[in-house]
Amino acid sequence: MEFFDALQWNNWKNLPLEVKKQLIQQMLMYFVSPLKEITDLHVVNYAYAGIKCETFRMTIDDEDFVFVPGTSEAILGWDLGVQGLPLSSWGLSWPSSNETAAGLAAAYGFQNEQDWSDYVNESTSPLRKRSIAPMLVQCHALPVGTTFVGVLDTVTAEFHGNVEAYNLFAEDVQANFQMPISFEESLDYALPESILEENRYFAELHPLTGNYLLYTHQQVSQKTLQTQLHKEGFVLLSEDQWEYCCGAGTRRLFRWGNEKTCGDGMTLPAEELLAPNMFGCTYGLANGWELTDGLSLKMEKWSTCSHSLLDALPYATYYRSRRILQPEKILSSIDYRYRKAILIEKDRI
């Protein structure tokens, strides 16, 4: 079987592990820059929403990547409205005091199933069939303009990661979360969700661990970011590639399944929302947009309104923000994220 054919998912999933090991070594040899350090290469098995995938995970310059097999016939986009979604997810009473919900209700009416279907279809990318190249994809999206440095334990103040980079701003970061010295102060005390000093560092509080993820920071636009990535042998995912990596080409609006509900809503608890999907990629670490290589933005900067479908929809595989990206505008690390990839294509050898 030819090398590139073997990397198609319908072939890849049936290959013996020893053959897969040979293929991943060839990928790393021919498609990753020799200036990059590759460590911790190992086999991983992911199972999510009934889909299983045996693949490889590795670090490239201390950042986590996973191999995603390609496909010649990914069906992407959505035109089925609320079909397949439980009535309880959209036929709910309105939180009348919420401005987000009230504004959408005024625009769409939301009196019947067709109103809801129109809103969902207009909030998702159009139905289409695409060929998706195999790729090495960053497991976690990073804040725009940042490079990961390490993790700071907010209880012990211990740092794990690139100590040399961290020492350049360690005192400034730690000064932002001094513990309260009195009981009265402790009643209102909360760690800041993010700390940004432009062109120096960025820190964000992980929602599960309560520790800070630390990054170096540089102001960038999408255009300058893409230039930087290309020099290092990376690209931003296209919208097609992003949707495929998120939902594995399944015909479900949500990667976890259209029928799955959690309590009174469809948005998963944080533990499940941040769990690796069927390809080992995670989504939804922070409230904000994720970049593609074009003008389309995935996910959303969203104020929850306690309505099941409205709060879940930005996490849908095919969701497309109504905000149009401006390629030369400086982007906020708090609001925007990016995900690196290396495409495994013949013309990139």
Rank of each mutant, 00 (worst) to 15 (best):
D347L: 07
H230Q: 15
Y108G: 03
V151Y: 01
E197A: 13
E290S: 05
R130M: 15
K340A: 04
N98E: 12
S303A: 14
P16V: 01
E198D: 11
Q8V: 11
S332T: 12
P16W: 07
Y244S: 01
E259D: 12
E73S: 15
V66R: 04
Q83R: 04
C262R: 00
Q138I: 13
A101S: 14
S303G: 11
G249Y: 03
D64V: 11
I24F: 09
A175V: 03
E198W: 05
E122L: 13
L76T: 14
L152H: 05
E54K: 11
V144K: 04
D79L: 11
D188L: 08
I349S: 05
L325Q: 09
I330S: 15
T55L: 01
T292W: 02
P143F: 06
Q326Y: 08
T147F: 10
Q25F: 02
I51V: 09
F148G: 04
R337L: 01
Q8A: 11
N277P: 01
I334N: 10
F110D: 12
A190G: 02
L253G: 13
R337P: 00
L17P: 06
L136I: 15
L187D: 07
Q25Y: 00
V32D: 00
S186G: 04
H42V: 02
D40R: 15
A106T: 11
I24P: 06
Q111F: 15
D40P: 06
S72T: 12
A203N: 04
I342Y: 09
E54A: 13
L310C: 06
